[in-house]
């Protein structure tokens, strides 16, 4: 079980709801992933439009917990207002907080992120900050009151997997009591497994499932990858070493002679 702000979930996989070939495939893929939490966004509705209503009923049919995001927000003010709109719209204090610094890299504006997190936590929000792998930033977020921290593996949608493994290991080591989620940049189930093997509590991804040739099969593959990674972490991975170490016993090797 993994716990986010006092709420426990069996699955350690969180998935997005965007970029699927169709609404039906989105629903099937989310079910196949086993995820108990899905991310959603907020967008302007055209006069007389019912786009939001149609999407929302698809999500409600899944019976999952909703984690709204502030994707696309470029300032603290936009992110804070979007979080408050999300609370009104989804009746939740959870917010995946994104403050984006640059449209090409989609890198978090970490200064704005800490500022927005501080404001929202004082207002009663439970913040899931999308951040870089920088320990000092993560520490500021924890100091602000975040119980969950979500560093990227690589830029959003890049599918590169974990670029800075050492920094992610350091975060896990230094923030043992924080629920850590690798969010963004995961491209393959092996990347997700690696994050769980490092002791991360969960992974959050969207594009790698939604843009697969068969999103439902890929969702299942990610479910298995996350389970394998977590099981391996709990089993205790051996340490890497620089040189070979024989797995077959040496004692009793035929034709063996003591060196004289």
């Amino acid at each position: 079980m993994v716990t986010f702000y006092g709420k426990s979930f069996t699955s350690r996989l969180l998935v997005g709801t965007a970029l699927y070939p169709s609404p039906a495939i989105m629903q099937s893929a989310i079910r196949a992933s086993g995820a108990g939490i899905v991310t959603v966004s907020l967008r302007r509705e055209a006069a007389g439009g019912k786009t939001g209503d149609a999407f929302w009923s698809l999500i409600r049919e899944l019976g999952v917990t909703v984690l709204p995001n502030t994707a696309g927000c470029r300032s603290v003010k936009e992110a804070v207002t979007t979080a408050k709109l999300a609370r009104e719209l989804f009746d939740t204090s959870w917010i995946k907080l994104e403050v984006i610094a640059d449209n090409d890299t989609l890198q978090p504006d970490v200064v704005g992120l800490v500022e927005a997190a501080t404001i929202l936590i004082k207002d009663g929000f439970e913040v899931f900050p999308y951040c870089t792998e920088d320990l000092s930033v993560a520490t500021r977020l924890v100091d602000a009151g975040c119980k969950v921290v979500m560093p990227w593996a690589a830029p959003i949608g890049s599918a590169k997997g974990i670029i800075n493994r050492d920094a992610l290991k350091l975060l896990r080591d230094r923030l043992p009591d924080i629920t850590l989620v690798v969010d963004a940049g995961i491209g393959a189930p092996s990347h997700a497994a690696e994050a769980l093997e490092l002791g991360y509590d969960a992974v959050l991804l969207n594009t790698a499932i939604a843009k697969a040739a068969d999103p439902v099969a890929m969702a299942n593959a990610f479910r298995l990858g996350v389970e394998a990674g977590r099981t391996a972490f709990e089993a205790g991975l051996m340490d890497a070493r620089d040189f070979a170490s024989p797995s077959t016993p040496v004692v009793g090797t035929p034709f063996w002679h003591a060196v004289s």
Binding site: T39, V40, S41, L42, R43, G52, F55, P68, A71
Partner: peptide, 25 residues
Amino acid sequence: PKSRWAATALNAGDEIEIITPRQGG
């Protein structure tokens, strides 16, 4: 909030955002 829609007066130049749920990652 919905409970204050009827009581909230609008003024010229106000910026109003009308938002619904949408797909997101």
